[in-house]
Amino acid sequence: MVLADLVLVCGVFGNITDADIERTVDACSRLCRTGGTVIWTRHRGAPDMVPLICEWFETRGFERQWLSERDAGFGVGAHVFTGEPQLLVPGMHLFSFVGYDVLRQANVQAGDA
């Protein structure tokens, strides 16, 4: 199924840890062919990870094609892979689904500490 022309990572980044977001972004270079596009989403609530997610894509050989405006209330990005695809590792773990409610509660508790 790889290398793909289009990879959708929608409804994921708001429900996994920051480390898993970065690992998933990194894996996109193993899923996309050169010229392939990743479309992804992430809420813009605190903490707003959208700028960092863009940076992670862009340091891994992706060029930003489009990003929703900050005041849209949500983040939608499209990045095109311009690098050379890396090998997909069989059985590679991308993320563990934690859930937005659990992550939000952890952020609230961290803010109280």
Rank of each mutant, 00 (worst) to 15 (best):
A72I: 02
W56P: 01
L8T: 06
L67K: 07
V9D: 07
T82M: 14
C32N: 01
T37A: 03
R33G: 05
E58V: 05
V80D: 09
D26I: 05
Q105D: 11
V108M: 11
D20S: 08
D48Y: 02
T37Q: 04
H43P: 03
P51V: 04
A4I: 02
F95N: 06
V25D: 03
C54Y: 01
V98M: 01
L94R: 15
V25C: 07
V2M: 11
G111W: 13
V98N: 00
V2G: 06
M1E: 10
V108D: 09
V108L: 13
G36M: 09
P90Y: 05
V76Q: 00
E22K: 09
L94S: 14
Q109A: 14
R30A: 11
E55A: 06
L31N: 03
M49S: 03
D112H: 10
V9F: 09
G11C: 03
I53V: 06
G75C: 00
G73R: 04
V12G: 00
P85H: 04
C10M: 04
R23W: 05
H79E: 10
D20P: 07
F97G: 03
S96K: 14
G36S: 13
D101S: 10
V12L: 09
C54F: 01
A110D: 09
L88E: 11
D26C: 03
V102Q: 13
T37F: 00
R44Q: 04
F57S: 09
L6C: 12
Q109M: 10
